[in-house]
Simulated assay, not measured.
Amino acid sequence: MSEEKRKVIPRSEQETIVSYDVERKQWHIYTDYPKHVRKYAILLGKIDKNDELPLTLDEYVDSDVFSASFSVRKKRELSEEERQVLSERMRKQHEGD
């Protein structure tokens, strides 16, 4: 393995950028965050689960192959009662598996 591949990008500088190029009708994915590099590289068929992880991923992907939806919203504040109801629902759901 080359020293270049062993280099680790400082955590404070790691990023993932997903943008849509309207003219090309393609998504552009750039990431140097290891968790996202693995996720997108496997999803796009660039590596298998057991392959060595590349340092970065920089790919254009056709919009019919990859779709993304992003939204920003205020985090929902749950009361203790709502939290318990949801917790019970999840417990029952996992017991059914």
Rank of each mutant, 00 (worst) to 15 (best):
L55D: 13
T56I: 09
R89K: 11
K92D: 06
E59A: 05
K25F: 02
R83G: 09
D21K: 02
W27Q: 02
P54N: 03
L57Q: 04
D97M: 13
R24P: 09
L78E: 09
V72T: 09
D97V: 15
E59L: 04
S69Y: 15
I29R: 05
E77Y: 14
Q14L: 00
Q14P: 06
D58V: 00
R24D: 12
E77P: 15
E80C: 09
T56R: 08
K46T: 06
V65N: 14
H94Q: 15
L43C: 07
S87G: 11
A41C: 00
E15F: 06
L43Y: 05
T56Y: 05
D51V: 03
L44Q: 01
K25E: 06
V18G: 07
S63V: 10
E77K: 15
Y30L: 07
K74A: 10
K49H: 14
R73L: 12
E82L: 09
S63M: 13
G45Q: 01
T16K: 03
R73V: 06
K46R: 13
V8P: 00
H36L: 04
H28V: 08
T56K: 06
G96R: 15
I17H: 04
Q14R: 12
R76H: 11
E4K: 08
D64V: 14
R76F: 03
T56M: 06
A68N: 10
R89V: 05
A41R: 00
L44W: 00
S67I: 10
E23M: 10
D21M: 02
N50H: 12
